[in-house]
């Protein structure tokens, strides 16, 4: 199985994949560079959140489905998968596609966040693009580090090193992207209309934001648990709650799909 998953991943690592990653990185950095002129920032952490916090929280559920789930949906629609069925059990094919899809979406977002992180922490200081004025926020060289530890969710990890934070946060975004890709994957199998199936993750995300805000549970909004920059810091476990709930729903749907595989018209 592992061999097949790796083979599937390799076949999907196209120039298009790299180009999308590069262009999204470039767009987010340019946007941050442009916007940063009219703001005074505290430090590199501010610049980092600046690159992410602008449009990525809204693009996120769209891009996480676009990376690969959309091509999986097309393969089902064009019945490519039907013709694998006399060669390999369909459950195995779905497993391979599921993990390849999840891992690649994870890689895409992990690399995206890491590049933004490297730019903010290691390249921007060389270029001197941002307009830093920590004193304007009452911060001095003595207390600024301590301040960053408490600024946003996950910056707790800055205590253990700048890179530690960068990697942990990139892992977190990658995992969530994988989760949204998985939600799309499951819906593509369960619903006959692939456009509906592919747009539902976005709907879930947006409706989640509004209903949770309306219910006063803002700290569980997906846009905040994944991109925790528009509010003060929350404990990390709060971010894990929506993630866990959605993961359990996906796992349940996968079990349902496995048990009802001969009833899924999409695969025949």
């Amino acid at each position: 199985m592992l061999k097949e998953i790796l083979q599937e991943i390799r076949s999907k690592l196209s120039p298009k994949f790299f180009l999308s990653w590069l262009s999204l990185t470039a767009v987010l950095i340019s946007f941050a560079v442009y916007r940063s002129r009219s703001y005074e920032l505290r430090d590199s952490l501010d610049f980092f959140t600046f690159t992410i916090g602008s449009i990525l929280p809204i693009l996120f559920p769209i891009v996480s489905v676009l990376v690969l789930t959309i091509s999986f949906a097309a393969d089902i629609h064009h019945r490519f998968l039907t013709y694998t069925r006399m060669r390999r059990p369909i459950i195995e094919t779905l497993n391979i596609n599921f993990w390849a899809n999840l891992v690649l979406t994870f890689i895409f977002f992990f690399c995206l966040i890491i590049s933004l992180f490297i730019f903010a922490y290691y390249i921007e200081p060389l270029l001197g693009i941002a307009n830093f004025n920590p004193a304007g926020y009452g911060l001095t060289t003595d207390n600024i580090a301590e301040d960053t530890y408490m600024r946003h969710t996950f910056t707790q990890f800055l205590r253990y090193g700048t890179l530690t934070y960068g990697i942990v946060y990139a892992l977190w975004v990658g995992l969530n992207a994988g989760l949204f890709a998985a939600i799309g994957f499951v819906l593509v199998l369960l619903l006959r209309n692939r456009y509906l199936a592919l747009s539902l993750p976005f709907v879930i995300y947006v409706v989640g934001i509004f209903t949770l805000s309306a219910l006063g549970a803002e700290i569980y909004r997906p846009s905040y648990t994944i991109f925790p920059f528009d509010r003060i810091q929350s404990p990390i476990w709060t971010a894990l709650i929506p993630f866990t709930i959605l993961s359990v729903i996906v796992a349940g749907s996968l079990i349902y799909i496995k048990r009802n595989i001969t009833k899924l018209g999409n695969l025949t």
């Binding site: 064009h78 019945r79 490519f80 039907t82 013709y83 060669r87 025949t268």
Partner: peptide, 27 residues
């Protein structure tokens, strides 16, 4: 068993040969 059921199937972005190769690689 070799089958054609309902309609042909394909991965849209691949050539004919690449499609057949992807199926053949399975076995």
């Amino acid at each position: 068993f070799g089958i054609i059921i309902d309609r042909p199937g394909y991965a849209a972005g691949l050539t004919g040969f690449e499609n057949l190769k992807r199926w053949a690689e399975i076995r």
